[in-house]
């Protein structure tokens, strides 16, 4: 059985907000390591990999591995019934036909209990090879969200060019073109806002902005984001949390 108590329930609400528009149904794979999820979007262009490590919960107990098949829209609706400061406890027994959710307020005088029906999901699990990327950009997650949203005004796609001087996001469309360049600035006072680049080789890649904008729904989870790129392989957009991560992989657009 699974029992996982999350002191900051808001984290789970934010996680659901970050994935529910990309994926409809997914298995939460629970093991003694924690709760993991991997799923592709419906059009098989993007992949989401989520990990909530066991040490993010107190207590965390999972005697044997369980796959909890969840409709994410339904789960996020139920999670909207939890207060932002509530402690959230997830429970499922080994038959795993329902997921029990308990929300306790901080004064511990209001306890709400919900049960969500689970479903059998026959999902493909993809093996993600360890990759050494040609370029890794670490930057403010809010800045990344702003750039994606701004450039979406101009085009469906963005060209990302990384050199040792900086990273340039450019878009061209019917109404014109636009570009935002962030210079590498590791010495700025505000560490949270610094743009840092690790570069083996310059890269220039094209990606769909619609997906990137969707990924930025994870912005409330982390102040920093990393973009890992190599020629003609999927972009990795990673938001690190205190006890886990959310990683989005996006297949590039190739050719003219």
């Amino acid at each position: 059985m699974l029992e996982a108590r999350l002191q900051t329930g808001a984290l789970l609400k934010k996680v659901l907000e970050a994935i529910k528009e990309l994926i409809t149904d997914a298995n939460f794979d629970c093991s003694d390591n924690g709760i993991a999820l991997q799923a592709m979007d419906n059009s098989h262009v993007a992949l989401v990999a989520l990990l909530l490590r066991h040490d993010g919960f107190e207590p965390y107990r999972c005697d044997r591995s369980l796959a909890l098949g969840v409709n994410l829209v339904s789960l996020s609706k139920v999670l909207r019934c939890a207060g932002n400061d509530d402690i959230i406890t997830l429970k499922a027994d080994d038959t795993a036909d329902v997921l029990s959710l308990t929300f306790e307020n901080t004064d511990n005088d209001r306890i709400s209990e919900y049960e969500l029906k689970l479903m059998d999901i026959d999902s493909e699990h993809l093996g993600i090879p360890d990759t050494t990327y040609e370029a890794v950009v670490q930057m403010s997650s809010a800045e990344f969200a702003r750039i994606c949203k701004d450039l979406q005004v101009l085009s469906d796609s963005v060209q990302i060019d990384v050199t040792k001087e900086g990273v340039k996001f450019g878009a061209k469309g019917e109404l014109g073109s636009g570009a935002v360049t962030l210079k590498q600035n590791g010495n700025v006072d505000k560490e949270e806002e610094a743009t840092l680049i690790e570069l083996q080789q310059n890269v220039s890649l094209n990606f769909s902005l619609k997906y990137l904008v969707n990924f930025t729904k994870a912005t409330p989870l982390a102040s920093r984001v990393s973009l890992s790129m190599s020629s003609e392989v999927p972009l990795l957009v990673e938001y690190k949390m205190e006890a886990g991560y959310i990683r989005y992989y996006l297949a590039p657009k190739i050719g003219e």
Binding site: H44, V45, L126, G127, I128, P234, Y249, A251, I254, G255
Partner: peptide
């Protein structure tokens, strides 16, 4: 325009 590639062409099914 550039063509969108499927993510499945990069990662194998396990």
């Amino acid at each position: 325009a550039a063509a969108q590639v499927s993510i499945k062409s990069f990662f194998h099914t396990v």
